[in-house]
Design a protein around this nucleic acid. Structure first.
Lengths: 335, 335
DNA sequence: GTGGCGGCCTGGAACGTTCCAGGATTTGCG
DNA sequence: CGCAAATCCTGGAACGTTCCAGGCCGCCAC
């Protein structure tokens, strides 16, 4: 049986209450007893039982997080959430969405844990069901835009991201710039809009070309092939392409490399996310970086504010992304 | 305030105990009252408080899982664990290791949750500290071999995996087969051993070549470059390479593709893990598949057996891997 | 001296559940 | 018809914490 407060108390020769004080680092115990209590706890290998602790204190100091375990960018976000939460003294309760465990199941399992708030990473649920959830407890949606009241949204300014990408490519001298799209993925619609607007602003309306893509390497590879398919040669193709996300962009790059598109045939590629993937030296992908530390900090802050009954009056935080120039973009080849 | 058992009880005009029975689906209530209770619970939006429930019942029905959030293969394992756990009626409590949150912190946070057992994915801790942990609670180590009593180990037969890889390459006609190594990573030592043994068995002792590598794409890319560096041409190189894991192998492939190593210069590549990465059509990596469903099922079963005081007498489950032939291996080019 | 105050400590009542012992009421059966 | 068994239900004691109301002591100021 695991040791309890009472065991530590008898061992140290004090009362349960005092041990409780010491474990929580609260004032009210002399340095000497404090030392004795900690020693006893150590010897017994005592760890406070969070269940009992939370049951009694009413507040769980727990933040529920729903994320997609196969999604590398979610890994970056969870990493950020952990550090943001640590500063506030809250713990994270993770619940993963997998191929065989849907979002509803992931959320349901957190509901039993009495989290004080829920942070959902790029959720797929309908606006209606998110609304229903938000009516029952504080909810923050991260990395997806959703028009529902009673919940906070923290997301990147996707349109601006694509403006940055297009501006960069135009500045390098490109005009035939295609977009490989994310379909129904969170943020995809905004990125399409941003792409179209930026192209038009540069007077490149005629060169707008949107290729269906997706979130995975696979989708990127397919899109890259369909981009080249049926073109008669380098003159008949975009000289640059901006891609829905880094993962998809590596698929695109892979196809380009395999086909040996270098020199006169080379095509610039811009990704999105600045995931750890993009930073790898051999990939070295120019990309639009989402501001993960800022996003995760805001998500945690807003979740807690809502939990404490003082929600931020501005429901959506739209964070500016930033362009990271690496090796996959260059001036268009002379043809 | 969230409704409690007592609220439901008064609303339905019965005792707390009765409501408790009904909520747990236990016999002992008439169909009619059962209906009334469920109705009352529904109207109030009642959800049982798992904390109180677990506190009282002593058993948490919770399995702690420590995993590396940046590690794609761990994502596959967690997915398997979820489904394995569901069949047993247990829930998973996830705790991630991130760049800024080490394994000790991940474990400590689970200790507070009174999990009935801990499953550690490829842990980095020393054998000694694992032993200390195992003395205090049931522990299963997954995907790493560790010589410690009082804990279960579930792992792939790494040596056999490399034997499969080498046999396959030899059958194709290769003799100059190099290994790109995983260094100190879990399983790496066994894979080195298996590689050496298989090469010797085929009389290829002279061709044994071990290149330092690692777990990431980056490590793979570097190893690939160093493999080619200083060789005078195709005749001076291995014709095949077997790589520590899929992630590292994609780095290797990437460099090979970029350098345009095709036809007469092409080099076969075998990965390890059969992660979702390898299955992508454009990567199409020949690899050694770890049997994830079997490993995760065993891990959960052994964790529970240990938790219930009936540990499997055989402390280590060594699962056979299987060769998955895809597109990155072929007979050596005629030179 | 005595009152008061601050620092240190204790006892016991919650928190929301489960579990146990037993109280009614009905049913079964000789 | 009576007694046992079965069925349905209730009350209250746990589980391991936190929190509140106090108790004891020594010290200082008047």
């Amino acid at each position: 049986m695991r040791p309890t407060l009472a065991d530590v108390a008898t061992r140290a020769g004090v009362s349960k209450s005092l041990v409780s004080l010491v474990m929580r680092d609260e004032p009210g115990a002399s340095p000497e007893t404090r030392r004795r209590v900690l020693e006893a706890a150590g010897e017994l290998g005592y760890h406070p039982d969070s269940r009992a602790r939370l049951l009694r204190s009413g507040r769980s100091r727990l933040l529920g997080v729903v994320f997609g375990i196969q999604h590398p960018f979610h890994a970056d976000l969870v990493t950020g959430l952990y550090t943001a939460a640590r500063e506030t003294g809250y713990e994270l309760a993770l619940s993963a969405v997998t191929a065989e465990r849907d979002e509803a199941a992931a959320i349901a399992s957190l509901l039993q844990d009495r989290c004080e708030a829920l942070i959902l990473l790029g959720p797929q649920s309908t606006a209606a069901s998110l609304g229903g959830l938000a009516a029952r407890m504080p909810v923050v949606v991260l990395a997806r835009s959703v028009r529902v009241t009673d919940l906070d949204v923290v997301r990147t300014d996707d349109a601006e991201g694509l403006r940055l990408a297009v501006d960069h490519l135009v500045a390098l001298g490109h005009s035939r710039i295609a977009l490989i799209d994310g379909g129904r993925a969170p943020g995809a619609a905004d990125r399409r809009r941003g792409y179209g607007a930026a192209m038009r602003r540069h007077g490149l309306t005629a060169h707008i070309e949107i290729v269906p893509g997706g979130l995975t390497e696979e989708d990127g590879a397919e899109a890259a092939r369909s981009l080249l398919l049926g073109t008669s040669g380098p003159d008949d193709r975009p000289t640059a392409v901006t891609v829905f996300n880094d993962r998809c962009a590596t698929g695109v790059l892979d196809v380009f490399n395999r086909l040996g598109l270098t020199g006169r045939e080379s095509i610039s590629v811009v990704g999105f996310d600045d995931s750890s993937l993009a930073r790898l030296a051999h990939v070295n992908l120019t990309t639009i970086a989402q501001n993960v530390p800022e996003m995760t900090r805001q998500a945690v802050d807003r979740a807690l504010a809502r939990a404490h009954g003082t929600p931020d009056p501005v429901r959506a935080a739209v964070i500016s992304p930033r362009l990271v120039i690496r090796g996959t973009t260059a001036p268009p080849p002379q043809r």
